[in-house]
Every structure is written in C-alpha cells, then in structure tokens.
Design a protein around this nucleic acid. Structure first.
Length: 440
RNA sequence: GUGGCUAUAGCUCAAUCGGUUAGAGCACCGGUCUGUGGCACCGGGGGUUGCGGGUUCAAGUCCCGUUAGCCACCCCA
C-alpha cells in the first residue's frame, strides 16, 4: 500500500508493457512505411530551452530543478524544442524534406485526471522543408494510418481539420481586426464548450463589437468548402485559402484517408505557433480527449534559432489512445510467450532437458523447463500457464529404449512420438540451418 | 492552483442502527494426483479497513485534518 509510484506516474507490469509495446510497434512500423526515421534527444534539458519562447509561466507546469552543477534544468515537457535544435544544428546537411519521428517520454507537473498523467509517451512526427499542402496531407495520412494499423476505423475516429490562414481570412472578412485575432481564436476554440452569451461577452471585453461577434461565432457552423465558398467566396483572401484547402482535400482523397476527415473551423489548437493547417483526432463518440493533434508551424524554427524552414508535425500520446483501444476491445492481451515447455518424468532427465533447451534457444525459440522436481501434471499445468505452444515430454523408458520423446500441442492436445535427434534436426532445418548449430 | 465525490486483501466487492475474532469471489501457492493441461473438491498465505487525530463503554461505520484516486474547472499534451 505504501509502495506506490509518484502521483501521475505508472508502473508497467508485463501486461501493461505489452500494451505499450503493441502501440509503439505500430507507430514505428507505419512511420517506416512513410519514410520517417527515428531520432531521440535527452530527457533532461536546460530550463531555458522551454522558457525562452513560452515565458516563465510555463515553469509551473514543468518538472524542473537545479542540478549539482547549479544549472537550472527540466524534464522535457514536449519534444518540439529539442527537435528544432537538432534540425537547426544540421539544417544545411539534412536531405529535405526531413521526415523524422520519435516516441519520447514527456513530463508535466500537473494535477492528473482521466487521460492526463504527469508522464506519458508521445509519438512525435515532424517534417521540415516543404511548404506545400502535399506535405500536410502526407502528415495527416500517416497519423490516420497509424490508427488504422491499431484496428480503428473511420467510424471510430474523426479527424477534424482547419486552416489558420483560412480562419484568419474569414475573421478579417467579418470585421475582426488584427489585434482582436487572439481573442477571436479563443472564442472559436470554445464554441462547443461555453454558452454563446458568455463568448459574446468575452469578445466584447476584447473590443469586438456585438454584430461582429455574432458573425464570427456563426462561422463555426459552416462545415464544408462549398458552404464557405457560397457565403464568403467573393472575398479574395478567403477564396485563395479555400482553393488551397480544396487541394489539400484532394490529396487526402488520393491517399485514401478522406473518409476520416471533416473540416471544422473550431479546431484552433492552443499553441500560438501554428501558422497553417491544423488538425485534431477524436474518437467519434466523443468520450475521450483528443488522441492526436498537430499542424503546420512555418515560423517556429526561425523563432527558436536562425533557420528559416517551413515545418509541420503532430503529437500522439499513449494514454488517451490506450484508453480508446481498450474501450473498443482492440488492445491485445499479453500474448503467449513460450514456444516449448520441456517436461521431465524425473529429476535425472533434467540434464537432457537443459541441453535440449540450450539448442532450441540458440535456434531462437523461447523455452522453459521445471526448475525443481514436479509431478508431470503440474508441469503440464505450468506449461499452459506459461503460454507454451507445445510441451515436449521426456520419459525415462521411451528415451532410454527408443530415444523417443512425446511432443504435445497444448492448444488441442494432439500428441506424437519423435526420435529426439530427428526432431531437433527438423527444428534446425526449420530455422534455416543458418545458426550453425548441431544437436548436442 | 480551485471545487465536488471517493478510499476495506493483488483485483472486484460485502460487513444490519456504531457492537465484540472484517468476509466472499477471482488470482496466487499447496494437496487429492507415480502423474498427460484449463474441471472438481480440500487446504494455505495475504488486511494496522490510505494515514493521523477526535467523539464513544465500543469506530471499517460518526467528526476533523492529511495523503492519494476519480470527475470537472484552469491549462494544455
């Protein structure tokens, strides 16, 4: 009872680690298919890497301390600054577009609740060096394919997509000034959560007039390029943004992921550095927090260093995704791990079992045998509990007389007798004979 | 950082109005079983009732504090 992990931190027992490994395996595999390569950075960074652009208020959300060399440091709360530093340092040498991914463990000192801990593993997928919406489409496609790879469908997950440039043009059209943009973004972002009267009031506080506020909030009701073109398409800036968005949608269609995607102007993303297309992935029933979020941040690399390259990326955490997969019955349980269980009739046969196990293990099989004297039925029970595929039963009489062992398939109880030597030769042949081993 | 709810075995839960040695199922270990697995039966280990105070003849139960968890806010991932 007393020995528990810190609040918001998790122990990964084998069953839970198997789940994490499953998710990470799919992340890696799908990233590979899209040509992304894996990188990593330090889990501990200088504090100012995070305060430089975000200001000091972020410190309240960080796991930070002063190390023994008097350096202010923090456990990384996000990967983007590290990524930006690494790319900037070798910007000229990297082949463009850069396609990198990472799955860092990130830390935030925050009150934990459902879907939010103080630590999580977050897949980060980023591209640098391509400004066209082809890259935006590629990025969303890889995110969707990862969910597909985990067994989810377009009925389970909705990708809600917007474009900051489109939204900015629409807001300008309805009368929002440059200075009022942040307040307008925030109001749009909150349309689903807060009552309209509250939003109008808040906008008024930011100097946005009542009629402008009403027209601004009405924008969130428009759900398609066609609707937007019909109502606001006569504005040149809006029209240009709509053309770009339509091309983006065409790319998504060609990539086979359009059925997952809807235009949704209320997707703004909290982070100020997004400059173009932004998206969030939600479960379709709305039971969970966002599974994934990202977008284009063309000016961030320049702001953090002096490399001026367009960039875009997303993050996908293991916590909410895991909750969704479990709720939909898509999280595989701990798979049986053993290929063979070598059962012995009595302890004198143990050396035979051990040398047999040694050979099978060199061939790459997972093998166990009883570590103490146990009745045969206990051993078979143990074999089943260990998740073994087959039991190899060594009995004194059969082994001494005919050199035979019994191989029993534990799934259906099918049993057959084999010469031990011949059976092992068959295992070696099966393994391709490439391991350079011969029967002991 | 703010508010609401909750806390009994590894897990899910029970324990009458406050009543005397806190129970059950699952899981784990052993036995029946010189013997070929998931069954059955029997047995075993495992609890300072989150922690600390208080009220009472008596507290798992009522009160206060504290810690943790859940939910929401804030904020974001």
């Amino acid at each position: 009872m007393s020995a528990k992990p810190l609040p918001g931190f998790r122990d990964f027992y084998p069953a839970e680690l198997a789940e994490r490994a499953h998710v990470m395996r799919v992340w890696r595999e799908v990233a590979r298919r899209y040509g992304f390569v894996e990188y990593d950075g330090p889990p501990l960074e200088p504090l100012d890497l995070y305060t430089r652009k975000s200001g000091d208020e972020i410190v309240g959300q960080l796991y930070n301390f002063v190390d023994k060399g008097d350096r202010p440091v923090a456990l990384r709360p996000e990967m983007t600054p590290t990524f930006a530093r690494m790319v900037a340092a070798r910007a000229n040498a990297l082949r463009k577009p850069v396609r990198w991914f990472s799955m860092p463990q990130l830390f935030r000192y925050e009150r934990q609740q459902k879907g939010r801990l103080r630590e999580h593993f977050q897949l980060n997928v980023d591209m640098v060096g391509e400004a066209d919406v082809t890259a935006d489409a590629e990025l969303l496609a890889v995110a969707i394919d990862m969910l597909r790879g985990l067994g989810l469908t377009q009925h389970d997950v909705r990708a809600r997509v917007s474009d900051r440039r489109l939204l900015a043009a629409l807001l300008a059209r309805v009368g929002v000034t440059e200075a009022q943009l942040p307040a307008a973004y925030q109001a749009i972002d909150k349309v689903e959560r807060d009552p309209r009267t509250v939003l109008v009031e808040r906008l008024a506080g930011a100097g946005v007039g009542g009629d402008v506020a009403e027209r601004l909030l009405d924008l969130a009701r428009l759900w398609s390029v066609d609707e937007l073109r019909a109502t606001h398409g006569d504005d040149a800036a809006v029209s240009e943004a709509l053309d770009r968005f339509a091309r983006y949608q065409a790319h998504l269609t060609a990539l086979g992921v359009h059925e997952w995607v809807v235009l949704d102007l209320t997707i703004v993303r909290g982070l100020a550095y997004y400059t173009g297309i932004v998206f969030e992935l939600f479960d379709a029933r709305g039971e969970f927090r966002a599974i994934c979020g990202g977008g284009r941040y063309d000016t961030l690399l320049k702001a953090l260093g002096d490399v001026d390259l367009p960039a875009l990326g997303f993050g996908m955490g293991d916590v909410v995704l895991g909750e969704l997969l479990r709720a939909r019955g898509l999280m595989p349980s701990l798979a049986p791990t053993l290929d063979y269980w070598l059962a012995v009739e009595d302890a004198e046969l143990l050396p035979v079992a051990q040398s047999t196990a040694s050979l099978l293990r060199r061939l790459g099989h997972a093998v166990e045998y009883p570590l103490r004297e146990q009745a045969l039925n206990k051993q078979l029970k143990a074999a089943v509990n260990a998740g073994a595929r087959e039991a190899v039963i060594l009995r004194r009489e059969a082994l001494a007389g005919r050199g035979e062992v019994l191989v029993r398939a534990l799934s259906d109880g099918q049993e057959s007798a084999h010469q031990l030597g011949a059976w092992l030769e068959a295992r070696i042949a099966e393994a391709g004979g490439a391991h350079g081993v011969s029967p002991a």
